[in-house]
Amino acid sequence: MIKRNKKGKKQGLPPGTLVYSGEKAAFETQAYIIEFNEQNFETREITTEKCDVAPHFEQSVRWIRIIGLKNIDLISQVLNLFEIHPLVMEDIFATSQRSKYEDYRTYIYTVLKNIYWDAPSNEITYDQVSLILGKNYVLSFEEREGNLFLPILERISLPKGKVRSSLADYLFYCLIDITIDTYFSIIDIIESSIESLEDPVIDDPKPVLLQSIYRLKRDVNDFRKSIWPLREVINKIQREASPLFSSGLEIYFRDIYDHIFRLSDLIDNQRDIIFGMFDLYLSSVSNKMNDIMKVLTIISTIFIPLSFMSGFYGMNFKYMPELDWKPSYPILIGVMVIVVGLMIYYFKRKNFFSK
Score class of each variant (00 low, 15 high):
Trp325Ala: 03
Leu342Gly: 09
Glu198Gln: 15
Met277Asp: 04
Pro14Asp: 07
Val129Phe: 04
Met315Glu: 05
Ser264Pro: 00
Phe172Ile: 13
Gln59Ser: 09
Glu35Val: 01
Glu35Met: 03
Ser286Phe: 02
Leu249Thr: 11
Phe347Pro: 02
Arg218Asn: 10
Leu263Asp: 02
Ser96Lys: 04
Ala168Phe: 07
Tyr345Arg: 12
Ile251Asp: 08
Leu167Arg: 14
Asp199Tyr: 09
Thr182Phe: 08
Pro321Glu: 06
His85Val: 01
Ile194Val: 13
Tyr126Met: 07
Tyr126Pro: 00
Ile292Tyr: 03
Leu280Arg: 08
Phe347Ile: 02
Glu90Gln: 15
Ser192Glu: 15
Ser196Thr: 11
Trp325Cys: 01
Ser99Cys: 14
Gly276Gln: 09
Ile331Arg: 00
Ala26Pro: 03
Tyr107Lys: 05
His259Ser: 08
Leu332Glu: 01
Lys160Tyr: 04
Val61Tyr: 07
Leu87Glu: 06
Val220Ala: 07
Ser166Pro: 14
Glu58Leu: 09
Val295Glu: 04
Val335Ile: 15
Ile132Arg: 03
Thr110Glu: 10
Gly16Leu: 11
Leu18Cys: 15
Thr43Leu: 04
Arg62Trp: 02
Pro207Tyr: 14
Leu209Ser: 09
Lys217Tyr: 08
Ile2Glu: 10
Arg155Ala: 13
Leu280Ala: 13
Gln97Cys: 05
Pro229Ser: 10
Glu322Asp: 10
Leu139Arg: 08
Phe41Ala: 06
His85Tyr: 05
Ser96Phe: 12
Leu158Ala: 14
Glu142Leu: 15
Asn136Trp: 01
Gln39Asp: 08
Lys350Arg: 14
Ile92His: 11
Lys100Met: 04
Arg105Ser: 11
Leu296Glu: 10
Ile302His: 01
Pro86Ile: 06
Asn235Gly: 15
His85Ser: 06
Asp127Ser: 07
Asp279Lys: 00
Ile299His: 03
Ile274Trp: 02
Lys318Asn: 14
Ile299Tyr: 03
Lys348Pro: 03
Tyr170Glu: 09
Tyr345Cys: 04
Lys318Gln: 15
Lys113Ala: 13
Lys160Phe: 02
Thr48Gln: 15
Ser130Pro: 08
Asp203Ser: 15
Phe253Cys: 09
Val295Met: 07
Glu38Phe: 00
Ile66Pro: 00
Phe36Pro: 01
Pro15Phe: 04
Leu280Ser: 11
Met320Val: 10
Gln59Met: 02
